[in-house]
Amino acid sequence: MISVIALFIKSTISQGIPLLFGSTGEIVTEKSGNLNLGIPGIMYVGGISGIVGAYLYEHSTSAPSAFLLILIPLLSCLIGSALMALIYAFLTATLRANQNVTGLALTTFGVGVGNFFGGSLLSFFNEKGSISTLETAKCFKAYLPFADKLGVFGDTFLSFGFLTYLAIVIAVIASWYLNHTRPGLNLRAVGENPATADAAGINVIRHKYVSTILGGMIAGLGGLYFVMDYTGGSWTNDGFGDRGWLAIAIVIFALWKPISAIWSSFIFGGLYTIAIQMPGLSSSSKELIWMLPYVVTIAVLVATSLRKKRENQPPASLGLSYFREDR
């Protein structure tokens, strides 16, 4: 029994991590008043840039170093997702385009980029089959050597690659940054009331850029985790599925709090796990379980709007672009 539970917890954690990266990134972005619906696209790009970086490096050298095997995919993932977020920030903050339209276009673009390179990268090199970067994945999956010697506990909680722990650390840091630092305070003010922030001497546009790009990079890591750790260094088109949208759902479910996003991600991850792995479950009941996260999210959204508790509302200027002379 214990081993079944342990297996369930392990699977839940690995399902939850991409969601946690995505939702933390989106929270950081939304706190500046930017509703970035391009996050699903950014996560695809984060994944594909990581895997392309890994592939190029693995094919350029015969004796890859573990350090570079981690560093290169990590950097290429961060650069890829940052560029995506930059497109969004430029269009919405500088050119004041509609956030919903821009975000959806970005997701179209990002999913396209992911699937395109995922599907045709090899043909550029006249190779056949599908991409796989086993060496890199091995490094990303490496865990502390003594973890599995610690019995069930070690196996269940310590046998993950570093990105797993990084996701939790980033969420904790994000929470601390938003709630206990000066720039975090200023950032929240931008999302709540940009005119007030502007009058207090805060550079609204710069804050929107920084938080959107930072948020995009965090979310991109979710894509990297998925391709390296979860699928073991391979790419399947549309394999990432609707996890990006689920991450946006978690933002609502967690009421825009990164710490709550941690356990929310694991709850959603657990539901995913049940749906996939529960023995004896008919395929139709699986689909119903899969539906649960969204139903619950709507319930939370409705409940917060009915209760009108101010702390639980979305950032007040979410979705609006700011133009000083509109005041």
Partner: peptide
């Protein structure tokens, strides 16, 4: 008034300030 509704009085008071000392509410 130019205040952020969901912030506390103290948070509003220090909003946008660039003080050198550590941020301590």
């Amino acid at each position: 008034f130019k205040l952020v509704d969901v912030f506390t009085a103290a948070e509003n008071i220090v909003l946008g300030l660039q003080e050198k000392e550590k941020f301590n509410m």
